[in-house]
Amino acid sequence: MKPDDIEGILRDALRTEVAAAAHGLDGLEERIVSDLGDRLPRLRFVDWLSGLIAPTRVGRIGQLAVLGATAAIFLVVGVLINQGRFFSPALEPSLASRARHEILFVVPALDKESVAVVGDFNAWEATPLADDNNDGIWTVAIPLPPGRYEYAFVIDGQWWGQDPLADEYVRTFGQYSSVRYVGQGGDGV
């Protein structure tokens, strides 16, 4: 047997051995990192905190000043928010109207010039309805707080107080008016 042949046999044997053990190398890097992590000393919160403190006295005073100023700013902002200074007056009504229900008034009125709704909610003064697509269906949505509301439609100047969508009707001064309950006891829509 020639020396060259022995070298080839050894090389093949080694290759076979390495190939057989190759599956053991899977995830080796992760295992090593994990192992190292377990052995490293854990950095505790107190240690982390003390690490933040400046090493010199002057530095620590500076840090305290920054901390105090930040706290003061938060305090002032909190007080202003509490007083409502950060809300513009224009926003206030929308905040106040959260409890309101958007009530839809609908009237079928073909070939009419004007349709309006009058009621307790507008002190019986006309709020116009719109028919943007000219299909004869006039609508308006009015936000109302919970309660009982009497109303009627005024179609081309004529009183029309019997809305089919009403919860009930009342007759006063010889004419009918519709009634809707908004909130509990009636959906008002």
């Binding site: 707080p145 919970p146 009982r148 309950y181 908004v182 909130g183 509990q184 006891g185």
Partner: peptide, 10 residues
């Protein structure tokens, strides 16, 4: 009927 139909806030 009226009193029962009115919402609690009223």
């Amino acid at each position: 009927d009226r009193l029962h139909r009115l919402p609690e806030s009223v």
